[in-house]
């Protein structure tokens, strides 16, 4: 059945294939266009470099009027990522705009990796280390980068 959400997700997918942003990729799962798998490659010149982080994106029929639920499947040590992989990012909550598409969501999460916001922490240890002990923070991040090869 074609609904506005499904129609729009087909368009999002087409655009992601035709004009893929650097360092991210995503596609609907085989039998359900409402659930996507995505990968974000750790941005260069950050401790996340070389990491391949897997995510799931779950849409509802209210997309694009409401944001999807985005979650890291790979373990990510980051001030704004919860233990369950949930992401604390304003555009996925109260600053969501229906003009964002999957491509915009993934690139925003990618830049969140480079620029954490330690003032609204989802992982207080990561936030504290990021602010007070950058070397230790980077060590912990690199550990999850290595973990991401195995996952």
């Amino acid at each position: 059945m074609s609904t506005p959400a499904r129609r729009r997700l087909m368009r999002d997918f087409k655009r992601l294939q035709e004009d893929p942003p650097t360092g991210v990729s995503g596609a609907p799962t085989d039998n359900n266009i409402m659930i996507w798998n995505a990968v974000i490659f750790g941005p260069h010149d950050t401790p996340f470099e070389d990491g391949t982080f897997k995510l799931t994106i779950e849409f509802t029929e209210e997309y694009p009027n409401k944001p999807p639920t985005v979650r890291f499947v790979s373990k990510v040590f980051h001030p704004n990522v919860y233990a369950d992989g949930g992401i604390c990012l304003d555009i996925l909550q109260n600053r969501w705009s229906p003009t964002y598409d999957v491509s915009a969501i993934l690139t925003s999460i990618q830049s969140l990796l480079s620029d954490p916001n330690p003032n609204s922490p989802a992982n207080s240890t990561a936030a504290q280390l990021y602010k007070e002990n950058r070397r230790e923070y980077e060590k912990r991040v690199k550990a999850c980068v290595e973990q991401s090869f195995i996952d």
Binding site: G86, Q93, N123, T125
Partner: peptide
């Protein structure tokens, strides 16, 4: 690592639900 993150419940999702 598992334990120290558990106190950070995903509040955003609870509120949104």
């Amino acid at each position: 690592m598992e334990n120290e993150q558990n106190d950070n419940v995903n509040r955003d999702e609870l509120i949104m639900q």
